[in-house]
């Protein structure tokens, strides 16, 4: 066997196909995506490939993106809502290198947004695709570890167990204590894991203009929520689903009704809360919005030490 990874191939990735995956694989993934769109919320098994990044680090999302990306697409990648977190940077660089596509941090400009753990604050529009990286696609997994059993539960729509968990939450804590990966029912049929996004983002999935695709590489599942689909968070009539509320606005841009990250300022209990969606925060500041802790000078961007 030849050794294609030495000499000739270390210079560029030209020997890899556009967007890394071969066309045969992309077709296979697209078929899974189409099936997923046809049956919203249903987990379609697919022959997940080994990717040049570790399982659990977005291999599912990367495969979905690789299968749907075209030369004219504009890609945005976020992790924790931020464009500049290391894994987002790494995945964006991967596609810039293997597909040569344009990338952006501006939510409205992107045609494909790959995300881990957040949905952008700016409402998505028709034609956009939001690709979620999913670690554990099975919402029933921690109630029932067996795949053979959970598939049967989905097939027969036996979701009582899901509410047993929520019931236990309330009995024990006085409230539903699930804060992220909060289960939803899609189009009145399948119970789905929205990936570990905070439940704050659940309402954004409902009747979204954009197509939402979910890829779980290690678990080999793809699922989808087509545009204009009902996505309802599970709850009780007397303990309705509610999202997190923050008591104060973003310290940098003054935004309210957005998801905030807590930043520890010192070792004396000093804290501030800033937008988790970095693009949203930056664009608000560019528009002149100012939060309580925003200095007069523009925010200095410092490269993290190694």
């Amino acid at each position: 066997m030849t050794a294609p990874m030495t000499e000739t191939n270390t210079q560029n990735l030209a020997s890899y196909n556009f967007a890394y995956l071969d066309e045969q694989t992309k077709r296979m993934i697209r078929r899974a995506i189409l099936k997923g769109i046809a049956i919203p919320g249903y987990q379609v098994p697919f022959a997940s490939r080994e990717m040049p990044m570790p399982y659990g680090w977005g291999t599912g999302g990367v495969q979905v993106t690789a299968a749907i990306i075209g030369r004219d697409d504009v890609l945005k990648v976020i992790d924790q809502g931020a464009d500049d977190t290391t894994n987002a940077v790494s995945i964006r660089a991967f596609f810039a290198k293997t597909a040569g596509v344009a990338t952006t941090t501006a939510t409205p400009d992107a045609t494909i947004i790959q995300t881990r753990h957040r949905i952008p604050e700016t409402p998505l529009h028709a034609g956009q695709v939001l690709v979620y990286q999913v670690p554990i696609p099975e919402p029933l997994r921690f109630l029932e570890p067996r795949e053979t059993e959970t598939r049967k539960m989905h097939a027969l729509e036996e979701y009582g167990l899901m509410h047993v968990k929520l019931y236990e939450d309330i009995a024990r804590n006085g409230r539903i204590a699930t804060t992220y990966a909060y289960p939803v029912k899609v189009e009145g049929r399948y119970v789905m894991d929205p990936s570990p996004t905070p439940k704050f983002d659940n309402p954004k999935m409902h009747q979204s203009e954009a197509l939402q695709l979910f890829g779980a590489g290690r678990e080999k599942r793809i699922y989808a929520v087509p545009p204009h689909t009902n996505v309802v968070s599970l709850d009780f009539e007397d303990h309705p689903f509610e999202i997190q509320h923050f008591t104060e606005p973003c310290a940098l841009c003054g935004a309210e009704q957005v998801y905030l990250d807590e930043v520890v300022l010192d070792d004396k209990g000093g804290r501030m809360f800033v937008c988790s969606d970095t693009h949203h925060c930056e664009s608000r500041r560019a528009e002149g919005h100012r939060g309580a802790l925003l200095g007069d000078e523009p925010v200095v961007e410092k490269e993290a030490a190694i």
């Binding site: 009582g160 019931y167 236990e168 009780f236 009539e237 007397d238």
Partner: peptide
């Protein structure tokens, strides 16, 4: 929850 499970399984949604 043990007693309530069947009720939830048949769609009762009032805690």
């Amino acid at each position: 929850a043990n007693v309530g499970e069947r009720l939830m399984a048949v769609g009762n949604r009032h805690y």
